[in-house]
Every structure is written in structure tokens, then in C-alpha cells.
Design a protein around this nucleic acid. Sequence first.
DNA 1: GTCTATATTGGGATAGAC
DNA 2: GTCTATCCCAATATAGAC
Lengths: 191, 191
Amino acid sequence: MPYSSEHKQNSREKILQSAYRLFSTKGFDNVTIDRVMQDCSLTRGAFYGHFRSKSELYKEALKFAASTSKLADIKPEGLSSREWLSVLLDGYLSLEHVYGERPCPLAFLATDIVSRDKETHKTYARGYTRMNQLILDYAGRDTVKNAQDIFSLTSMIIGAVAVSRTLGDQQQVQQILSSCRQQARLMLGGI
Amino acid sequence: MPYSSEHKQNSREKILQSAYRLFSTKGFDNVTIDRVMQDCSLTRGAFYGHFRSKSELYKEALKFAASTSKLADIKPEGLSSREWLSVLLDGYLSLEHVYGERPCPLAFLATDIVSRDKETHKTYARGYTRMNQLILDYAGRDTVKNAQDIFSLTSMIIGAVAVSRTLGDQQQVQQILSSCRQQARLMLGGI
DNA sequence: GTCTATATTGGGATAGAC
DNA sequence: GTCTATCCCAATATAGAC
């Protein structure tokens, strides 16, 4: 009896899960297909049944990350938009995020993306636009006079997380994150 | 007659110049020693007379970039500290910087650094600390109540440049940079 | 769909001539 | 100090058995 297509779908998702985790923490060149497949307990031969190349995997992992990010979650019933945004920002600007396993690829792959192909750039750009869009929606268009004001906020939180990850000194990282949490609230008119 | 040690010093600097440009635009893995040496019109064999390994080259290029950055320049006589800071920020948050040949490695290598060795991390961290220090000095300690407030500013400008580089849409990049220039002035109490 | 074996390439590093 | 030739490993991708 052949494997079901559902089973294949499952394998695909496991591969994406592993790929996302590995790519975002190590970057394209420091992840091998072998490593990804080991990570999800499959073998390399199986890989080519799901993806044509490593580049395609990278791109799909990026999409996958965007669709499963906390930002894409539905707002919990009990919270107002701005309370929920506050929760999201605190999560983003936290040690758990900086050192965690499911980081935001916008921050973790910011400079890695440049060497990838055009399609991947577009995928990244879509994710970035989406992030701005979501934050703008939660903040409310009345709070943010100009849609473009959001850009400085997202630049800041992405930059903070990207830089923090490279710094050894956790004390300093805490200061950076804390400084940005405070500044983010100011930018959003105090929430 | 043997080559002078001055000649060797010159070669070293040319190598660093090329390495800095190539590494910061392409990242560690997408630059080969061959490419660097070609770029400065030397051959690969000569490389090992100057550096022990590619990693060492990367680290030295990072130091070199820090020591020759515009931020490290002496303030021109005619300008006040805050005017000079204003010039520096506008230069940092400009299209020329984002698409130029001598970019800030703090932004361009933010996520590339993570995969490097400990010594390289330290070099990056020193550069980051130095950037904060310099901006704080120019801004004046009276303007910035808390030294840590600078962190949100540097996160923002580094993040903006890092993200901008990956986006194809120049219109959008302009908006991001402009949004950050405006926000930077607000953060520094209007300059 | 999964696995093993293998072809192939790219690039870091070394040795030795000049 | 610089160059050429060479070794060698790591990793992508393919072919074919099961």
C-alpha cells in the first residue's frame, strides 16, 4: 500500500519546520540539506521528492515562517487591539525571541537574504510589508498619523533583534531591548 | 633587492580595502579569497603572506572598516557637534549608503556575524559600542537623559539600512529612510 | 516515498618555483 | 612577496534499487 498524500504533506511540513529553525539561526550557507533532513528524521534522498533545490526550500521556509508567526495569530477575544499590540511588541523585544528557536526571519535573515535570488527577495519584502500592515492595523490609523511612521518602528525592532543576537553581553542586550520597548510605546503615542 | 616592508604594508591595506567592500556586500560565504585577491590585483598565493586564514581576514576587515568609517572622522571645524551629528545621520540614512561601496558593517553584516568565531563577535561588539559612544558624545549628555536611550536610535538606523538593502522597491526604501531620519531627530530632541 | 551510492563542483589551504 | 599547481574536503545533486 502506497503512502497517502496526507503523509507526504506531513513530511513536507516537518521539513519546513526544521528548515525554518535552522536557516533562521545559521543562515543559508551554514545549513546543509543533510542537516535539515536529519533534524526531522528523514534522509536526504527523500528531500528531492518535496523540493527541487536548497534555494526553493529556503524560500518556502520563509513563507512558512511568515504564516506561522505570532504576528499572524488571531487577536485573543479579551484584549483590545492596542493591548494585543503591546503583548506582541514585548514578545518581539524579549530575550526569549532573541535566543529562541522560532525567531522572526525578517530580523534573523536581514543580511542573509541579499545573496538569495529575486523570488526570495520578494518573499522577504512581502513579509516585511505584512508586518508593517499588521502593526498599523493594531495601532489604529488615528494613532499613527502617517502610515510611513510605522517604518521607523519596524526598523527599530528588527534592528534591535538582529544586533542583539550578535552580542555576547546579555546585560547589554537587556538594555537594548528595554530601550526599544520604551521607545516603541512612545512612538505609538503611549500604550 | 627585496620588497620594502612599506610595500607589504601597502598590499595589506589594499587587500583589506577589497575584503571590506566584498564581505560587507556579499557576506562571508559568498566571497572567496580568490575574488578578494583578484579585486586588488594580487594572486591567491600572496594572500597567506598577510593573513593566516579567511576568518582572520574577515575580522581584520571589520576592524579596518570601523577605523575608516565616516563616524570615525574628525568633526569639521565650522560645525557644532549637533550639526555634525545631523550630517552623519543623514549620510547613514541615505540611498548612497544603502547601495554604496563602503557600507557600515554593523548594518550589512548584522546577521552574517552570528556564524563567525568569538573573536569576530567581539570585534563587532566593540564597533557597536563605539558607534553608540560617538553618537552619545555628539548628541551631548544633556540632550540624552539616559545613555541607554541611544540604543533605540542605533537599533533603528542599523535596522533601517539592513532591511532597505533587501528591498527592491526604491520608493519604499526612500520612505523608510525618510521616516527614520525624521524619527531620529525627534529622539534627539529636535536638531 | 525512501534510501544508498556516486558524480561533480567549488573553494580553502599548502608546497615549492621564481 | 608573488605566483602556479595541487591536494583535499564538504556539500549539492542525480541515478537507480527497493
